[in-house]
Design a protein around this nucleic acid. Structure first.
Lengths: 249, 249
DNA sequence: CGGCATCCGTTCGCGTTCCGTAAGACTTGG
DNA sequence: CCAAGTCTTACGGAACGCGAACGGATGCCG
């Protein structure tokens, strides 16, 4: 019944208090809201408004994490991220506009650790910051490979196989599968998935429906009658490890 | 990329009982309805009618969450939200006029954690409040499994089994069963159940009757003569832990 | 530069499931 | 035997999930 495949993180929120976070956004309102929230959560926050200032500040104050808007005057957020990566491994959370898939991919490829679609709930931001920080402080291990019931997901390589055979998953499908596999045997509403997997605060829930269907097409023995990625009527979806699974955690 | 909250503390709805909610609306009717529903869900509720009072009350009673109407006499709801943010991180749910997408965005950027379009269903409000609170405490922390007399309920997976065999319960049936199993050996009137399980303050009591019957059909050895989910004549229903008990006195 | 393929988000119609209510039969207690 | 309470059944409507298809955006390759 244990859900977490990796050992539970030994890092409490207390260990995060006092960490430095650099917020980079040209919109003062957004920056202000984000900052005040992060401060309330116990972080020490600095704000800058453009890409050059971001690079300079990153050099000067050496923050523990950077929250970076994708759209910036001067240097683009993704470019900032890339340049940061050349000489540091400071975790970066990228703020992207809604729906721009490429922003997300570009962000991930540039080395961002997480992303969040605007407009975002500040609370969500805090959760992500804490999550990323906890991860980066704790094990320096890149990311553990996920294995279950013949499936094998490698998050760092972003490849998926079933019984050794390559599964041609798209980016979204991979994210979705990874999340469900990580939290198997737990039901998630479409809204939950949209928030966590997509990083959206709101949006069309049928987006999730369709992607679930497409994912099923690739991982289910018989997509017509799902046995792994099952529907919980009126609630959401669940990756089930029941009955026939010859699983090794 | 991935968001793993991985907080070790399990959070059920009981942990939300007793939390303070501040309802801010200038329409007494709306405020009253919202309050009574929230109280029924176990929250301690305070009401105020305008923006200034809201800020004052927030300062004074330090609520766990604030339900805030967007349209307010005095200070606008969004502005209230923004001012709150300068010195606290109390979660805010914003009530906005129907359909206006911009309100939504403005609200989220002002620091709201969720929003709800008017007119809203009180039940929806309760769900949102619980959802946001739970999220602010720690997301996706699986609830503890409920086991008794061969039955096994897993709230996070939303699965029910008897002696290992899957019980095909509908959403309502699951909620009802879960509640009764949690508070076994305790009698609840139809009204109680309608309020707690359904989240209604009024409604047709026969709704409960029918669902009890349907649930019996699935969990009782002989549904005609219930031994587990028994009727207490003139009072209500009870999930009985020892089969023989007919404590009618 | 232009055509092709891929992926993603959205939309719409269809079939199914579930829920609430009504109405009548039955049981219980006085 | 009566009245109030409870059980059973049936039904219509609403909510929901699914499948198929479309248009747009993007990247790739000729």
């Amino acid at each position: 019944m244990n859900v977490s495949p990796a050992a539970p993180s030994p890092i409490g929120n207390e260990d995060l208090v006092g960490r430095r976070v650099l917020v980079v956004d040209d919109d003062p309102t957004v920056a202000e809201v984000a900052s005040s929230y992060l401060r309330s959560a116990g972080f020490v926050v600095d704000e800058v408004g453009d890409g050059f200032a971001a690079l300079a500040a990153a050099e000067r104050i050496d923050p523990d994490l950077i929250v970076l808007d994708r759209m910036l005057p001067g240097i683009d957020g993704v470019e900032v991220c890339r340049r940061l990566r050349t000489h540091s491994s400071t975790p970066v959370i990228l703020l992207t506009a809604l729906g721009s898939e490429d922003d997300r991919i570009a962000g991930l490829e540039a080395g961002a650790d997480d992303y969040l679609a605007k407009p975002f709930s500040p609370r969500e931001l805090v959760l992500r910051v804490q999550s990323v920080l906890r991860r980066s402080i704790g094990e320096f291990t890149p990311e553990s490979v996920l294995e279950y019931g013949g499936f094998r997901l490698d998050p760092s390589a972003r490849t998926a196989t079933r019984d050794g055979a390559e599964l041609a998953l798209t980016s979204r499908e991979f994210d979705l599968f990874e999340f469900l596999l990580k939290h198997r045997n737990q039901v998630f509403s479409r809204e939950d998935l949209l928030r966590t997997v997509w990083g959206w605060t709101y949006g069309d829930l049928s987006t999730v429906t369709v992607h679930v269907r497409r994912l099923r097409e690739k991982i289910e023995p018989d997509p017509r009658t799902p046995t792994l990625l099952t529907t919980v009527w009126g609630v959401g979806y669940r990756f089930t490890t029941n009955g026939d699974a010859d699983a090794v955690g």
